[in-house]
């Protein structure tokens, strides 16, 4: 088995190519998902904020002389 991982002495080159590729692909996936989650949270907050603001402001406008 360790012979297999040695890959005739080229193991370091081969396994590092696979490892770097895997790490990069997982990294991009995770950052993309995180960005999506962040944008959803921000959008939700903004939408509830705008919704809660609207009636209050109309009330204050009515109260103005």
């Amino acid at each position: 088995m360790s012979d297999y991982f040695m890959m005739e002495g080229y193991g370091l080159y081969i396994w590092s190519s696979y490892a770097i590729t895997a790490v990069a692909m997982v990294f991009l996936l995770v950052t993309s998902l995180r960005g999506l989650g962040q944008s959803r949270i921000e959008l939700d907050q903004l939408e509830t904020l705008l919704k809660s603001r609207r009636p209050r402001r109309s009330k204050s406008r009515d109260a103005r002389p």
Binding site: L28, L29, S32, G35, Q38, S39, R54
Partner: peptide
């Protein structure tokens, strides 16, 4: 295509946020 779908979705959200922030300013 998986990454594309995820990133397009979050960019659409970002633009919606920008639009809401703008309209929020005007709405005053």
């Amino acid at each position: 295509f998986i990454i594309l779908a995820i990133r397009v979705r979050s960019e659409l959200n970002e633009r919606r946020i920008r639009a809401l922030q703008l309209s929020g300013l005007f709405e005053q």
